[in-house]
Amino acid sequence: MAKVAREMVERAGVNVDELLELLVNNAAAELTTYYYYTILRVNLIGLDGETIKEIAETARIEDRNHFEAIVPRIYELGGRLPESMVDFHNCSACPPASLPKDPTDVKAMLTVLVEAERCAVRGYTNICNLTAGKDHRTYDLAQAILNEEVEHESWFSEFLGEGPSGHFLRRGDTSPFVSKFLK
């Protein structure tokens, strides 16, 4: 634990134990989504499926990056990950992004994907709201992740016919916002 780092956050009026639980639940959401998106990605085949495979893959890799970026902050603040991966899975802040019954139904696939991203957008907005002006480092981290979640949402929602997102596919490296926490 980074003693003074935690003390600063406590003194600013943040309930650090609650924040830690939220961070663990969101770290769980990231790693489990990475897993479930792996299954979605391998099933994105055929003319329609292949079209969205690349963004699903980018979103998958970035979610793993989000997990990697959150974990150090959990330990800095004096928290830890559950010993059991089963417990970790089950405390996820977002539901499993399970493969639809009919994996050839691309609209159903996109709906699973966009809903997972929307849950993440809401979750990180909440962490930003709780830490803004108080816990600068967690805020910076949550805001970086939020930037990427908003882009993930926009990629999938565009394919669902919800209108133009204004975004391009990633060019170059993944995680343009979160990468500074991965170095």
Partner: peptide, 20 residues
């Protein structure tokens, strides 16, 4: 719900601060 909200309560006011 989200660590800080509990069932069995009136959450009318709390929902105003929710991201939905």
């Amino acid at each position: 719900h989200q660590v800080m909200h509990h069932a069995g309560c009136d959450l009318t006011e709390a929902l105003g601060r929710a991201p939905h």
